[in-house]
Simulated scan of single mutants.
Amino acid sequence: MDEHTWLRTGTAILTEIKEWRRAHPTATFVEMEDEIHRRMMELEAQVLQDAAQASESQEWGQTPGQPAPTCPTCVVPLQARGQHQRTLQGNGGQSVTLNRTYGTCPTCQRSFFPPR
């Protein structure tokens, strides 16, 4: 996690909010609240993405002795199929892109990004 990036992003968002407010001097409280919330979701998405990327579970199957996740149906260890990107939608509507090890069940051949 890069706190410097978070601080830069947060500072940029605060500057944008101030500029928006100057450009909209008659905005209502609700309009200001909506604009601030929309912009803060950008920071939330970045922090969420960085926190998720810092998880040890993103690179399962690459460390000797580390158990692989199991298939939720067959309960057998998954086979790692390399790193792939997965894009999720955060609560605020912002996209969060994660790099994760993709896995396939050797029994049922189902594939997914564990852990779910």
Rank of each mutant, 00 (worst) to 15 (best):
M1A: 15
M1Q: 10
M1Y: 10
D2Q: 04
D2Y: 03
E3W: 07
H4W: 10
H4E: 12
L7Q: 12
G10T: 04
G10Q: 06
G10R: 09
G10P: 09
T11C: 01
A12D: 14
L14K: 10
T15V: 06
T15D: 12
T15E: 11
E16Q: 15
I17W: 03
K18E: 14
W20A: 02
R21Q: 13
R21T: 14
R22N: 09
T28M: 09
T28V: 07
F29W: 05
V30R: 15
E31W: 08
E33R: 09
E33K: 06
E33D: 12
D34H: 13
D34Y: 05
E35I: 03
H37C: 04
H37V: 03
R39W: 02
M40Q: 13
M41A: 13
M41I: 00
E42S: 00
E42D: 00
L43R: 01
A45W: 11
V47A: 08
V47T: 02
L48K: 01
L48H: 00
D50F: 04
D50N: 04
A51H: 06
A52K: 11
A54F: 03
S55K: 10
S57V: 05
S57L: 05
E59Y: 07
E59A: 11
E59V: 03
E59D: 15
E59P: 00
Q62A: 15
T63L: 05
P64G: 07
P64C: 06
G65N: 03
Q66S: 07
P67N: 05
A68S: 14
A68L: 11
P69E: 06
T70V: 11
P72N: 12
T73W: 05
T73N: 07
T73Y: 08
C74L: 07
V75Q: 14
V75K: 15
V76I: 06
V76Y: 03
V76T: 10
P77D: 05
L78S: 06
Q79I: 10
A80K: 11
G82W: 03
Q83C: 09
R86G: 02
G90F: 05
G90K: 02
G92T: 03
G93Q: 13
G93E: 08
Q94T: 07
Q94G: 11
S95W: 12
S95N: 12
V96Y: 02
V96C: 09
V96L: 04
V96N: 04
T97Y: 09
L98Y: 06
L98R: 04
R100T: 06
T101Q: 14
T101F: 01
Y102E: 01
G103W: 02
P106G: 01
T107V: 15
T107N: 14
C108F: 09
C108I: 09
C108R: 09
Q109G: 02
Q109F: 08
R110C: 09
R110A: 12
S111W: 01
S111G: 12
F112D: 15
F112I: 07
F113Q: 05
F113W: 13
P115I: 06
P115C: 01
